[in-house]
Nucleic acid binder design. Sequence first.
DNA 1: CGTGGACCTTAAAGTTGCTTTAAAGTCAAC
DNA 2: GTTGACTTTAAAGCAACTTTAAGGTCCACG
Lengths: 134, 134
Amino acid sequence: MFTIAEAARRAACPQSTIRYYERAGVLPPARRGDNGYRYFEADDIERLAFVNRARELGFSIASVRDLLRLADHPQQPCEAVDTLLDEQVRSVRQRIAKLQALETRLAHLQRACDGEHPVHECGILAALSDTDAA
Amino acid sequence: MFTIAEAARRAACPQSTIRYYERAGVLPPARRGDNGYRYFEADDIERLAFVNRARELGFSIASVRDLLRLADHPQQPCEAVDTLLDEQVRSVRQRIAKLQALETRLAHLQRACDGEHPVHECGILAALSDTDAA
DNA sequence: CGTGGACCTTAAAGTTGCTTTAAAGTCAAC
DNA sequence: GTTGACTTTAAAGCAACTTTAAGGTCCACG
Ligand SMILES: [Zn+2]
Ligand SMILES: [Zn+2]
Ligand SMILES: [Zn+2]
Ligand SMILES: [Zn+2]
């Protein structure tokens, strides 16, 4: 029997996030005391930890819901799990590729400025202003 | 004298984005006709293009405002420009590093599943469920 | 008993950068 | 004069939370 403060401490996440997860349907409605307070058991905290781990891995709330549903039905084939993970990997690789392209362009831009001069001579702003810039 | 549709076509961005930029204070309030319609000149479209380029480079709306303010004061030293760019590069590199760490963890996780089996034997979900997982 | 401080509750708004929708006015052509 | 393509605004929606405001609850100390 933990209060939300204890649960938050154990899961190392803000209380507001726990409430949000409940609202978002990724955690089931918590048991309540007569005072209306939420109370958590070890199970609940493990489930919360599962959510936190999945979120750290970048899964969306919707995907986390799917993963939990799968974890709750152990007899099903794991194909859906693999698919979710594969999609996540592809998404992360895509984001990396985009950011790397961005980094290249930004680094290129950095070399357009050699330091001491007024803005109107700055190659950086010139590149941003120029319609024909690479 | 272009309508918003023409401006959007020339800048290759949705009309709604142009209105949003105006609202967000990154573009000045557009001139209006007697009918209330916005009208744009070549200057305005160049400014819009500047914004679009900066946004493509990942600069926040706030940074774009700063960059425009600098571009409007050509006598100032370009130091502030360099700083904004340097920060942007650092931010992009940080995001790449985080995503690469994520990719590694996800790829690792992929190897925990060899395909055909029920969910309760799946190493992926085991790793997500296990409090002591790497 | 009572009061102060630490806890808990909710609904609602703020964040970022837009897009989408709804309701309504304008314009040009036929 | 009516159709259809344009324009306007305010407001809501998206993702995943965080923050705020206003208000109950609990407990220990005096
Ligand atoms: Zn320079
Ligand atoms: Zn410079
Ligand atoms: Zn497997
Ligand atoms: Zn599997």
